[in-house]
Simulated assay, not measured.
Amino acid sequence: MKRAQAIVPSPTAADLVGGLSIVMPVLDEAAGIVARLQSLQPLRRQGVELIVVDGGSQDDTVSLAEPLADRVVTTDRGRGRQMNAGAVCARGNTLLFLHADTVLPPAAMSAVRQALASGAAWGRFDVRIVDGPAGVAVVGWAMNLRSRITGIATGDQAMFCTREAFSAAGGFPEIALMEDIVLSQRLRAISRPACLRQRVETSGRRWARHGLARTVLTMWWLRLRFWLGASPDALARAYGYTPR
C-alpha cells in the first residue's frame, strides 16, 4: 500500500493545543447539513475553525454549507482525500475530523485540549449510536471497548490529533475504505490514543438500512479481509461503495 505524502506543514510557534480546526467531509448531505453546521456555530464563535470538504455532491450541499462554515473546499470523492484537503487548508494546530452524521458532546473542545495537553498526540471520543435498530447500543459499547483495547479508532469516533502528529503519520491514506484504521495504526506508533469517555452521537442509519446483524457481520468480514491484505477498492465495492 502506497503511503500518503506528508501533507501538513510543520507546526508554527503557536501552542499545539491552541487553535483548533474541525474538518467535515461531506457528500450529498443537503437534507441534514444545515442543522449539523448550525449546531457547531457556538464553537465558531469561540474561535474554532470549521472547514467543510465536499466530494462532488449532486445536491445543494455546497451552497447550504457556505454561509455556515469558515471555508468550503471541493475535491474528488473519498473520505481520506477529502479530509487531507481540509487539513491542508486548516489554520489550527489541532485537527478534529468529524463525520457529517456525528454530533460532538458538550465541552468537546475543552476535552480535546486537555487530552493533548496531557501528552497524547491524538485521540478519539467514545461513541453512542442513535436512531438505529434495537440492540445498536451494544454495538457502540463494543466499538468503544475494542478501540480502548487495541488503540485503533474509527471515523465515527471523531478522531483528533496535533498537526505535528498528522504530518508525521502522512495524513489519511487516500484509499476507498479503512482510511481511519490505517491512520490509527500510524498514529499509534507515535503515541497511545486519548480514549475520551465523553460520547459523540452518530447516526445508526446504516444499521437501520441493512439490519443490525447483517451490518455487524459485514463490517467484521471486511476488516478481516483487510487485515489479510485485500484491496481497499475491492472491499469498498463489497460494502456498496460505487465510484462515480
Rank of each mutant, 00 (worst) to 15 (best):
L20F: 08
T75N: 03
R197K: 01
P106F: 11
G204E: 12
A189H: 08
F166W: 14
V34L: 04
V23Q: 10
A168N: 03
L222I: 04
L98H: 06
A65N: 06
V23G: 05
T150D: 14
A189G: 09
A236Q: 13
S184G: 11
E29N: 13
Y241R: 03
R197W: 03
R45G: 07
G204W: 10
R192H: 12
W221G: 10
A169R: 08
F97D: 08
I7H: 01
A238N: 00
I149W: 05
V88P: 06
Q198P: 02
Y241D: 01
R225F: 00
T154V: 15
C161T: 15
C195Q: 11
L43K: 02
A14Y: 11
A158R: 09
R205V: 13
V26F: 02
S57T: 04
M178L: 06
T215S: 15
T74W: 06
A194C: 05
S184D: 05
S167N: 05
G47I: 03
E29G: 10
D59G: 12
A69Q: 10
E66W: 10
L212F: 10
H99Y: 06
V127C: 01
V48R: 04
S39R: 08
Q82C: 10
P193S: 08
D70M: 12
M24N: 09
R113F: 01
T242W: 07
L217S: 15
N93P: 11
V72I: 04
L40K: 00
G211E: 00
S57V: 13
R186W: 08
L27D: 07
L96P: 06
V127L: 05
A165P: 07
G140D: 00
L40C: 11
S231P: 02
I33F: 08
V52D: 01
K2L: 14
K2E: 15
P243L: 01
A4C: 11
A14C: 12
P42N: 02
W221S: 01
G55N: 05
A142F: 12
A90I: 00
G155I: 04
R91P: 02
D28W: 01
L187Y: 06
A234I: 01
R209C: 11
S184W: 14
I181V: 15
G80Q: 03
R244F: 13
A69D: 06
P133G: 10
A168M: 02
A142M: 11
D59F: 10
M143H: 12
G19N: 13
P25D: 05
L37S: 09
R36H: 15
G92E: 11
D28N: 13
G80Y: 04
I152V: 10
P9D: 11
T74V: 13
L95W: 04
L145E: 13
E49M: 07
L116S: 07
A100V: 12
A176D: 15
I181K: 09
R113D: 05
M83T: 14
L177G: 06
V8E: 10
A13E: 02
D180T: 03
S231L: 01
R205A: 15
R44Q: 10
G229Y: 03
G78A: 07
P106D: 05
L177H: 04
V62Y: 03
S110Q: 09
R199M: 14
L196R: 12
L196I: 11
R197N: 00
A35W: 01
D54S: 05
S118L: 02
L43H: 07
G80H: 03
R225G: 02
V88L: 15
